[in-house]
Design a protein around this nucleic acid. Structure first.
Lengths: 207, 207
DNA sequence: TGACATTTTAACCATTTAGTTAATACATTT
DNA sequence: AAATGTATTAACTAAATGGTTAAAATGTCA
């Protein structure tokens, strides 16, 4: 009568997927253990069997989200063998195309970090999330060599990242203010992939 | 023995202030009516006497937050008697200096809008939050007249707004990634007030 | 097959939380 | 000062919620 036992680890996976869905939509405070259990199609007690409590389950979801969100950023800031221009172009495309498939990700992470900034610090330690400054340094060198306008590299990078991330967290506001229909939204995002690097280069490059 | 009755409306004000503090910090789901009562220094039942329930109290806080956050935006997009350049410069200064005094505001609003996008639509109706497109039109005209580069005005305005708002919601991430100390943060923000318009003009203005 | 370990469930428990009630304090008007 | 309406409180209630327990189902392997 009962379902057969799941093959190896399948349950844990189902739980994590369900937890991701619910936590991403509702945040830690808005998420209910019962809802996660329902979403996973299992008993609530089984959640506690696999993950001792809500905190532990959340932590697993948060860690994965952080990784998924930060990896494109770290890749941009690091990879030694690309030019400034390549890093910026790749980042815009890479980030927007990746996050597009999980558009609630940035909002989730940012909300949870602001709810408890300490968590970021601790995860940074254990997960080795030290963000390398290669891009910043590279821009600095370009300025010294007179190839770029004398901008503050940090301000420029923050602007780049802002322009890529904000549309995902501010979508309803943007759509309303700019009168962009649901139907137009995808094209609007797509356009940004190429526009944002162009903007940055206008700021960076000497005329 | 008991405190004397408060002068006229003072209690309602105290409650709203306390509710603002708590809701802004914790969001709707994270806020506790008891916590708000404590913060206001009153009995929990008094909350329900002034505002029938949590929803009604929250709605009051949310409406005020929305107004405070959107007014600078609307002012920029509207005011008939300023140039494109003035609108952009004023907005960056006005928005950053205002929000700086309530840095949790954008995060609060964005989180709550994403939790329930419908609320934005309804508030827009009742509060008359129809955002005028004067700035967009003005930029369009400037392009037609050959004074500006042929950019998409909406993309440009979204970029402007992104650069102004994101630092407030992404602060912990930015500080960590860019290695900006608490002490340096204020100066970093201050710099953006003038930098952001410069960036925008580089994109907009013909060389 | 049957003993043993692992996985899953139903039912339960303790605490928290939004909201209510009924009584009390206070101010105002007569 | 008595009467009346408003503001405030302490104590309570019902529902929701995270977590537990003990038993049942399932798989493994000697």
């Amino acid at each position: 009568m009962k379902q057969p036992k799941q093959p190896e680890e399948a349950t844990e996976k189902k739980i994590l997927e369900a937890a991701r869905t619910v936590f991403h939509r509702a945040g830690y405070d808005g998420a209910r253990m019962q809802e996660i259990a329902d979403e996973a199609g299992i008993n609530k007690a089984l959640l506690h069997y696999y993950f001792r409590n809500k905190d532990k389950l959340f932590e697993a979801v948060f860690r994965e989200a952080l990784r998924r969100n930060m990896i494109p950023l770290m890749h941009m800031m690091m990879s030694a063998d690309t030019t400034v221009e390549e890093k910026i172009t790749n980042f815009a495309r890479n980030y927007i195309e990746t996050i597009r498939r999980n558009p609630e990700l940035p909002g989730f992470i940012i909300h949870e970090i602001n709810r408890n900034p300490q968590r970021l610090v601790e995860n940074a330690k254990t997960e080795g999330l030290v963000i390398p400054q290669t891009l910043i340094v590279q821009i600095g060198e370009g300025i010294e060599q007179g190839r770029y306008n004398p901008v503050d590299p940090r301000q420029l990078v923050v602007s780049l990242v802002s322009m890529c991330i904000f549309p995902f967290i501010g979508r309803p506001m943007i759509q309303m203010a700019m009168q962009i229909s649901e139907h137009e939204w995808d094209a609007f995002l797509e356009e940004r992939i190429t526009l944002i690097p162009q903007y940055i280069f206008k700021i960076l490059h000497k005329l």
